[in-house]
């Protein structure tokens, strides 16, 4: 492990925490972007699972397995561009962790996820359980009990304006993340072809022996 962690053979199989958090976050993003209703208890609960996965992955980036640590794939925009050029010329280098372009993608996805989470948290003052309780009240039809909760009306105009702004950022960052995810999948496909190496298997079960 004394050698430069950036070079050497790429993993045949990512460690279990990298794999689980990767697919977990993918599921969370897909579920909340497509299937759940914004502001619902399910949407918020899934968002909180996303927080847990992101925090765990970031902690793993500090102290985890060698190729999962930030040091193994530092953000280097210039190296990323050079890597994309080398892809074009057909002679991409091999990296032990993410390649420089992939690393930039990872950080871009994490940052947009963090923005989505932060704005999402700013919009919800209650835990998913509290929201679920409120939804149950609404469904039952007895709205009188809602008076006096944090969601009760009487917002002033300035508050309303701020909330709209936060909501806008939340949606923009979410759309940006989806666009980046599409680009990420395309990048994996191009890279797999250029390296003649299946880059998807290491993220699932590893190379078949």
């Amino acid at each position: 492990m004394a050698a430069d962690p950036r070079h050497g053979p790429a993993p045949d199989l990512w460690d279990p925490l990298v794999r689980t958090s990767h697919w977990g976050i993918a599921l969370v993003v897909l579920a909340n972007a497509v299937f759940t209703k914004g502001g619902s208890s399910v949407h918020v609960a899934i968002g909180w699972i996303g927080i847990a996965l992101l925090v765990l992955r970031l902690a793993w980036g500090l102290v985890g397995a060698p190729e999962a640590r930030f040091g193994a794939f530092p953000p280097q925009p210039r190296a990323a561009i050079a890597h994309l050029r080398s892809l074009w010329s057909g002679k991409p280098g091999h990296y032990r962790s993410h390649n420089p372009a992939g690393a930039m993608m990872v950080y871009a996805l994490w940052i947009s996820l963090a923005v989505v989470i932060a704005t999402g948290l700013a919009m919800t003052t209650d835990s998913p359980a509290t929201i679920a309780d409120r939804e149950a009240i609404v469904t039952s039809g007895d709205w009188s009990t809602l008076a006096g909760t944090s969601d009760a009306g009487d917002d002033d105009a300035q508050d309303e304006h701020a909330r709209k702004w936060v909501k806008e950022v939340h949606e923009m960052a979410a759309n940006l993340m989806l666009a980046l995810a599409v680009l990420h999948v395309a990048g994996v496909m191009v890279e797999s072809r250029a390296l003649r190496r299946n880059l998807v298997m290491p993220m699932i079960f590893g190379r078949r022996k």
Binding site: P16, I51, L53
Partner: peptide, 25 residues
């Protein structure tokens, strides 16, 4: 063992997120 540890970690972190979120309130 590492798969079990990972599963345990994920469950515990999700539980911690929900608990801490509630506790902050």
């Amino acid at each position: 063992q590492s798969a079990a540890l990972t599963a345990f970690l994920i469950i515990q972190t999700v539980a911690a997120a929900f608990f801490v979120g509630d506790a902050v309130g």
